[in-house]
């Protein structure tokens, strides 16, 4: 049985920042809790996408020819471009966490804006890809109206393509909103080495979005 560990000394240390919530004893406790919370949330995200990955895997195994034939409608170059854009955005995101950790306010804002720019580029490329698919009638489910398919069931691939990239796209948009909010707070000077949990956990979220794309890219664009 452990005895009492008084932690009163922590109060003095955490007390000076206005961001310590009343129910935490010290900043590090609040920071760790926020990180645990975020990681748990990321696990739920992994399992949410995981459901689609499992469905994709099983349908792929059921209709290999259809998936093979359908994936040729995707443009590898566009996919690779978006992969690179997202990887760079992850890099700039992690640099903004570093800037916050080392209290470099201007760099923090710069890197956050660069991340936003990359995310924007990603969405623009996605927009062109989507509109191209729409144009060709490569729509999900019953709206699939592409002519000249040699293998039936290709619409199944596009059902997954749109559901998976669509859900991913929504996550990118949410991430952009979160990063914009960070920019707003950073400009007000909220973040420093003493308090940067929001930057850190938004970064974690952003990297997960990147990580999911890392798997989506080969599964969608590169199957052979």
């Amino acid at each position: 049985m452990s005895t009492a560990v008084p932690s009163a000394h922590a109060h003095a240390e955490g007390g000076h920042t206005p961001f310590l919530q009343h129910h935490f004893r010290e900043m590090s406790q609040q920071f760790d809790a926020a990180k645990i919370g975020m990681w748990l949330f990321l696990v739920t995200e992994v399992l949410l996408f995981g459901g689609l990955f499992v469905g994709y895997g099983i349908m792929h195994a059921r209709h290999p020819e259809a998936f093979m034939a359908a994936h040729h409608h995707l443009d590898k170059t566009m996919g690779a471009l978006n992969t690179v854009v997202l990887l760079i955005s992850s890099f700039t995101m992690v640099l903004s966490v570093w800037a916050a950790q080392t209290s470099r306010k201007k760099l923090l804002i710069l890197f956050l804006l660069l991340t936003l720019a990359c995310a924007g580029t990603f969405m623009v490329v996605k927009y062109f890809e989507y509109s191209h698919k729409f144009h060709e009638g490569l729509l999900p489910g019953k709206y699939y109206s592409h002519k000249g398919d040699t293998v039936p069931g290709q619409f199944l691939f596009f059902s997954f393509y749109f559901m998976m990239t669509g859900l991913h796209g929504i996550h990118v948009l949410l991430g952009m909103a979160a990063i914009a909010w960070l920019v707003w707070r950073a400009a007000r000077g909220h973040f420093s080495s003493a308090y940067y949990a929001p930057v850190e956990i938004t970064g974690l979220y952003w990297h997960l979005v990147d990580l999911i794309w890392i798997y989506l890219f080969p599964l969608m664009y590169l199957i052979s």
Binding site: K35, I36, W39, L40, L42, V43, T44, V46, L47, G50, G51, F53, V54, G57, S90, F91, M93, V94, G203, L204, H207, L208, D210
Partner: peptide, 26 residues
């Protein structure tokens, strides 16, 4: 590296645990 799991054993366990359950599902 980007998500700092190198220095963060506890959250690494959470994350790998999540992947493990995804694997069970699959």
């Amino acid at each position: 590296f980007f998500m700092h799991l190198r220095h963060d054993k506890f959250n690494a366990v959470i994350f790998v645990g999540g992947l493990l359950f995804l694997a069970i599902f699959l």
